[in-house]
Design a protein around this nucleic acid. Sequence first.
DNA 1: CTAGTAACTTTCAATTTACAAGTGACTTAT
DNA 2: ATAAGTCACTTGTAAATTGAAAGTTACTAG
Lengths: 135, 135
Amino acid sequence: MIDRKNPGKAACVDGRSPCPVACSLDLLGDKWTLLLVRDLLLGKTTYTEFQKSPEGIPTNILAERLKRLQAAGIIEKARYQERPVRYAYHLTAKGRDLRPVLSAMIDWGNKYIPGTVPREQIEAMAPQLSEGKQH
Amino acid sequence: MIDRKNPGKAACVDGRSPCPVACSLDLLGDKWTLLLVRDLLLGKTTYTEFQKSPEGIPTNILAERLKRLQAAGIIEKARYQERPVRYAYHLTAKGRDLRPVLSAMIDWGNKYIPGTVPREQIEAMAPQLSEGKQH
DNA sequence: CTAGTAACTTTCAATTTACAAGTGACTTAT
DNA sequence: ATAAGTCACTTGTAAATTGAAAGTTACTAG
């Protein structure tokens, strides 16, 4: 599909428009993808760990999202053990650079949604996330 | 639905968990909602203007999202003209505070998705968005 | 041999989305 | 005054996506 409002311009791969927000949302705009990125930033690496998160992601969606994120170059899948085969998922630089997005959501959530666990408490268990915030 | 991993804690309204990211995504986690917030930050205010955006939001989704955003206190609907009745939508403080989220997405999109229109070009037409970035 | 774990895949009903068309109040052009 | 057009929706329907559960494969431990 071609963006008819910008003929000739190669919009982001198969995107709805050349807007960076629209293109980002084409990849991240759902209820689960950024939650997975959050888990990865919190240090989780395996399929089972992702499943155990309190939101309870359905396994079909988990498997599909891992594939999509890998295809998009946001995560990498590595076999960390043979016999039995076990896989670990890690963020790439592209994935780690999503920290500011998550960080902004934490701030917004903390400010406007009562009952959400505060940033400091999250940072206490996740040193990796803190680096996304500019003080 | 109660969050069984955090008994006793009043998680955000009907949320999947007390995580600020999860709660934010319960409200904003889809392909269209943040695009509407973007349009509002760009100065668009009417139903027809939202429809005209290059992504082409379906009208049933537009009407539903406007209702949800209003119910969430992110936008306000105001009658700006009688005979004929016309409505304008504006961001509340809660809505304007989503700027850092959009801002982070613009940066990420510009860095990793080739062909997206650069921040400077967006800022040129939208002074309101610039205020969301800390230089 | 039985039970259990990890990482998935499959199935299918339910929900959401996309696209098209229609509605009602009002205005503008002929 | 009739015809066409705009705005802000609503309705209908087909297609796509999601959620919940069960099944699969490969391996280990008792």
